[in-house]
Amino acid sequence: MAKWLVEEGIGEHRAIQLGPDGIEEARIFWPGTRLVAGEIADAKLRERIGEGGRGRVEFPSGEQAFAAQIPRSVSIGAPVRMQVTREAIAERGRFKLAQSRFSDAPVRPGPALAQSLVDESHEVELIRRFPDQADWQELWLDAASQKVTFDGGSLLFAETPAMTLIDVDGSAQRAAQQKAVAALAKALRRFDLGGNIGVDFPSVQDKADRKAIDTGLAECLDDWPHERTAMNGFGFVQIVTRLSRPSLIHRIARNRSGAAARLLLRRAEVLEGPGKVELSAHPAVLAAIEDNWLEELTRRTGKEVSIRPDPGLALEASHAQLVTR
C-alpha cells in the first residue's frame, strides 16, 4: 500500500499518494470544519424520523446531523453518543446536514486529515512540501474547471444534488472508450469522489463493445471500493461508493474564493529569498483570507506580508511574490 504524503498548510491540509505519473489519489481537509467524519460526541436527540432508529441530533457545537441506529430507549432531548459518518455538504440550492450513527466508543474530537488516514491503517508522512512530481496545481485547476482531458476526448463533471454526473466526450469507438475508462478511473481517485456517480458514455450500439467497457471499468476500479451497474443501451453507468467528505470538485465549486485563497497561501508559504511577501489577488479571494492565516504565514516565512487587490485577476490567477521593502 502506497504511503500518503500530507501537507498541513494554512487553512487547508492536503494528502496525496504518488505514482509514476504524478498524483494518483488526493484528499483535502479544511481545519475548523464542524462535525468531521470520525468525531464521537454526546449529542442530544432533537427529533425521531419514521421507524428504524433514525432521527436528528444536535452536537455540543450546536451543529445538527441526521442520525441512524438510535436506541429505542433514548427519548427526545436526552443525550445519545453519536459518531459522525459524513460531513455536512453544501450543494447547489441547499445544505445537506452531516450524518451520524449511534456509537458506544469513547468520545473523541474530529480527526485531522493525517489522523483520519492513520485510522484507516494507512502509512502517513508529514512533509512541508510535496515532491516536484506532485502536480497539485494541475489537479486543483482540473477540479476547478470540472474538466479532464485525455487522448481523444474529455471528461466533463457536474455536481448536482442527486449525484455527480460525468459526461464522456469523445468517439464511441472501442479504443477511444478504453482511454476514457482509464481517465475516468484516474479522475475518481484524484478528485476523491464519492456517493452516487453517473457516467454518460457516447451511445454504444454493439453489445460486445458495451461489455468491453464494463470489463475495462472492472479492471481499472478493481482496488477501489464501489458498486457499479452494467452499461445500459444508452451508454449510462451508475457507480456508488462511500461518501464521508466533500470531494475536491465539491469544495472548490461551493467555495471558490475560499479554495483560491488557500491555494494562494500555499504558493506564498514556500517563497525563498529576501524581501516581503506580496499577495496579489481578486478582492473576493483576499476577503476569504482570515486574519490568523496571515499571521501564520508571517510566522512560517519569517517575512512581512502585504496584500494587493486586483479586480482584473481571475480567482484562480492569484499569485504570491517577494518584493523589496
Rank of each mutant, 00 (worst) to 15 (best):
G11C: 05
R14T: 11
I23H: 00
I28M: 12
L35W: 04
L35D: 05
A37P: 11
D42P: 05
K44N: 10
R46S: 09
R46C: 11
G50D: 11
E58N: 03
P60E: 09
E63C: 11
A68V: 09
P71L: 05
V74I: 14
P79T: 04
V80Q: 03
Q83N: 09
A88P: 10
A90N: 10
R92I: 13
A98R: 02
S103K: 05
A105F: 09
P106F: 04
P106D: 10
L113K: 01
S116D: 08
V118K: 14
D119T: 11
E120N: 14
S121E: 14
H122E: 12
V124M: 01
E125F: 02
E125P: 07
R129Y: 08
P131M: 03
Q133I: 13
A134T: 05
Q137T: 15
Q137H: 12
E138P: 00
S145A: 14
S145D: 15
V148M: 01
T149S: 13
F150I: 05
D151N: 14
D151P: 02
G153Q: 09
G153K: 03
S154L: 02
S154M: 04
L155F: 01
A162M: 11
A162R: 06
L165S: 14
I166C: 02
I166F: 02
V168T: 02
V168I: 15
A172D: 15
R174M: 11
Q178W: 06
Q178C: 04
L184N: 00
A185W: 05
A187I: 01
R189E: 15
F191K: 01
D192M: 03
L193G: 04
I197V: 15
I197K: 01
V199L: 08
F201K: 04
P202Y: 03
P202N: 08
K207A: 15
A212V: 07
E219P: 05
T229Q: 02
T229L: 04
A230N: 12
V237P: 07
I239S: 01
R245E: 09
I249W: 00
I252F: 00
N255D: 15
A260L: 02
A260P: 02
R267S: 12
E269K: 13
E269Y: 06
G275I: 09
A281Q: 10
V285P: 01
L286W: 05
R299K: 11
R299D: 11
T301R: 03
R308G: 07
D310N: 14
P311C: 06
L313F: 03
A320W: 01
L322Y: 01
R325M: 11
